[in-house]
Design a protein around this nucleic acid. Structure first.
Lengths: 195, 195, 195, 195
DNA sequence: AATGAATGAGCCTTCATTCAT
DNA sequence: AATGAATGAAGGCTCATTCAT
């Protein structure tokens, strides 16, 4: 039952299925056949579109990162004050859109996947650098370079830390608490810039 | 030529080899044969001692957690003031003993492994609870319950966050910076308990 | 935009592409998609014209055999003496037109292909019989039947032998040597018919 | 049902099965599973011993070449006159031991296999060089260098030619004829060295 | 105690072929 | 006439696990 112009639809379906399947399994040990079946097609077609399992994973990872990036960018467009922008980044990072169990689980696995796969590592680095520069460009207006650097690193660690804990620690705080704790960390630093 | 009393030696060798293999590979995709070879024995013997690959992994995970736990406990025995004890926990978490590339890599993989494997999840929860109670029992003496809870969660997230970033982010801060940032976070909260 | 009267052009393109692909790959392990792409069309169209991969191969094989046969026939039309005709057959067999690396490589693979595929076997037998009868009809005029038979077999073996060696042995003699050696074999037999 | 010291037995069984399977199929399109089954073991074990299908093929090719080489060497040890030695080489090449349908078929396929596989090409070149030097070292004592070279090439081509024809041409001469024709070619050249 | 022989299930990937458009 | 979407079977290879020795 071949149809024309199916490529983007198929690719999208495969990416969604990949994230769902990984999220559900809790690991990258999902088969192409599983993914393809969930996406409503044969494994052969999945390979036809992506070439290999690795490419499917990378596309899914790219999708998650792009979604997150788009969301942050969209939110940042609404505010201009450095402090507001920093709070926006934090809020966006934990926004329900990016903070679904499924996405976090897949995300975490891709995060670790980067240890093995150079292309995944590259994607992760882009994400890391972008978050860092987003934080720094605002912090630098409020703090000394050294303090800004520290707070940027601290915030990034806290964000990643809450992600991993949310996915894996039973007693991790809920989303609202997570946001509160992270925002507090930020405000404290802005309130006492000399400390 | 089989020898008697080899069991503990063999088990230790296998655990060390497992951590080393996982650390090197950057993932759990290591074969029992690889592990056994590195430990200087046949794969059959590895199964003889542990029963299954999963048990080998769990033993290695337990080993890492116990090492960390023992180290923290040892350090805590030397100090009694809540503030000192909190700083000790942070310092121990990033102590070179626990912060080797290899151990971090293996640790991270076990962390994710817990999503799939109930026994691993249980081990991780023990670690989580112990860290939390260690932090709380000291924080509660210095802060309100609610603030203590927040700071405990924030510290735990930061610790885990720095671990994962250290393993995976090219531009993660070095150990000394990591400690400085985390200790700052703690001190700030202790200095302004009402905030 | 489909065009009319394309069939012969498409078929020719596919046959040429098949020979080129096989020659390049050095084996029959070429995909229909590769062949079709080289011929400037989709794999679907290749099937449309030939029905199956086997038919494509057979058509290519037929093409090589027909080219060779046409060439020999054309050259034979120019000479009438048995000895000249025999030399003509040898010369034609190693003529640059039939002795390109690509054609030899494809030819060899088809030769072996005949072991598996009845239709290919039939084609090969036609070639074999034709070469044999071409040689015999001339040799019989110069030698006894038994000797003629021997020389015909010897020449055929030498021709095939040089083909396969040319394709596969690094130190095989060059074309001019090949011709010289084969012609020598012929002349020796004609010079000493009783031997 | 594992037993000790099985390796050489298994390897031998696999090599024999490979030659038989290829001979029967008439092509290299045989599966590892087929080969393993014929050799009385699982496909996994075949991989355990050889690592890959390619290695299995190469081992089988090596086996055929070594058998042939050993046989020739054994026969050559019995005669010392150049002419006798040359006739011995021819006779050995067509000896029933090396001239079974099965071995010829496998041999031919490996011959073509060499176009694709560098290691197979190397093996083939060794065979080619050895045959050439065997022929040359004797011919050079009876003929001029140039003539010796020609006859060596002619003989090699005829031998290969008869092999391929025997495998693939219905009307190829029988073994005794093949030997007669090749020996005649040799004697003719030795009888009229100036020609 | 220790080995490594042996199995078999499972996965990724390829590809000829079909078919809606 | 032409495309390329789609399938599904098949194959090479890996690996945890078992077991005879």
């Amino acid at each position: 039952m071949p149809k024309v112009g199916m490529e983007p639809i198929r690719r999208k379906a495969l990416i969604d299925a990949t994230i769902a399947e990984i999220g559900e399994a809790g690991s990258l040990d999902v088969t192409v056949t599983q993914i393809a079946k969930r996406a409503g097609m044969s494994s052969g077609l999945a390979h036809h579109y992506f070439g290999s399992k690795e490419q499917i994973f990378l596309a899914a990872m790219r999708h998650i990162l792009r979604s997150y990036g788009d969301h942050v960018r969209g939110e940042l467009a609404k505010v201009s004050q450095p402090k507001d922008r920093l709070e926006t980044i934090i809020a966006a990072s934990f926004h329900p859109l990016n903070f679904t169990d499924e996405a976090i689980s897949a995300w975490l696995n891709f995060y670790v996947y980067a240890r093995t796969t150079p292309d995944a590592k590259r994607l992760l680095e882009v994400y890391g650098r972008r978050l860092h520069s987003n934080l720094m460009s605002n912090l630098i207006q409020l703090l000394s370079r050294r303090r800004a650097e520290h707070v940027a690193q601290g915030l990034a660690a806290m964000i990643d830390g809450f992600y991993i804990r949310h996915a894996l620690q039973e007693n991790a705080p809920i989303r609202s608490e997570v946001i509160a704790i992270t925002q507090e960390y930020l405000r404290q630093n802005l309130a006492h810039p000399k400390q």
